[in-house]
Amino acid sequence: MKKRVAIIVLLLLVIALIPTFAQTPKKVAVIIKATDSDFWQYVLVGATNYAKENPGKVVVTTYGPPSEADIDKQVAILEDVVNSKPDAIVIASTSSDATVPAIERAVKLGIPVITIDNKVNTNAVSSHLATNNMKGGALAADMLIERLKAMGKPLSGKVALISAMAGVQVLTDRDTGFLNRLKEVAPNLKVLPTRYIDNDIMKALAAAEDLFTANPDLVGFFADNNHSGDGVARAIKERNLGGKIAAAAFDSDPEEVQALSDNILYALILQDPYGMGYKGVDSALQALAGKTLPAYVDTGATAVTKANMNEPKIKGLLDPMTLKK
C-alpha cells in the first residue's frame, strides 16, 4: 500500500518536473511589504495572474513579512531570496535604505531587481514602478475641494488629516502632496495637526471622534490609507454626518467601498496594486530578455467616487480579487 502511494507520488513529481526541464520558465520572486493587508494581497494577485496567463514562461513565488512595521524581517527575507538565486526579483521595499545592500548584491550576482511602490536609494535597480504618491495626495485635495464646492460651502474652516503611521515614506508623500495642493488652491482651509494611529482602526476611530468633538467646525477629512479611512468612515457614520462633510481616503477595502456607496466617503484615491504586481513581473521578464527599461513608470492614481464606482475597469481597481485567476 505504502509502496504504491510512494510510486504514484514519484510519478506525479516526474510529470510535474517534465515541463520545467522542457521550457525552464524564469523564476521570479515577488516580495511585498506585508501579508496582513488587502493592498499587498492585490499586488500578489497581479503577479500570480501574470504567471497564470503565461504558463511555462514564468514561475512566481511570493514572500512578505507579517506587517509593514517589520522592516528588519523584510530585509532578512530579501537576503534569503537572493541566496536562493531566483532569475529576477520584484520587491516593494518598506524601507528606502535598509534593503539597498541586499539589492546591490543581487544585481551583482546577475539577478535583475524591479522595485515597486517605494523607491529605493540605489541605481542598481532595472526599473521602478510606482504610484506617484505626491500626485495621489494632490488628487485627494482636488476631490475634497470639488466636494466642498458641490456642497456649496466656502473654502474655509478646518480639515483633519489622519495618517496611518509616522515615518513611512509613501504616507509622508501622500500627506505632503495633499497639504501642498490644499495650500495652493484653498489657502483659507486650516489643516489640523496630523494624528497618527499605528495602523489600528480602533485608534483611527477614536482619533476621528475626538477631532469631531474638539472641532465642531470641521469641514473635511483626509485619511492616507485604508485603515485610517475605515476609522474615519465609521466615525462619520456614527455621527450621521454622511454627506455633510467632505472626506477622501486612500486605498480600498470592503469597509471603504461600503462607505463610498453609502455617501460617507466622497472619494477614494486608488493606486493600481494589481497593475503593479502584473507589470512588475512583466518588467522583470523584459529585463531578463535584455531590454532597457525606463527608470520610472508611474502606475497612476485614480479617483473613485460613487458616480464611477460601478464601471468595470474601476471595479477591478476597487477589488482586484475579482480579477484573480
Binding site: 496582513d36 499605528d198 489600528d200 480602533m202 476611530l205 485603515h227 475605515d230 470592503p254 469597509e255
Partner: peptide, 16 residues
Amino acid sequence: LMTSRLANGIPTGGQG
C-alpha cells in the same frame, strides 16, 4: 466587541 464596533472582522485587529 471590536468587530461589532468596526462592522468588520479585521485580520490586523488587536495588534499591540
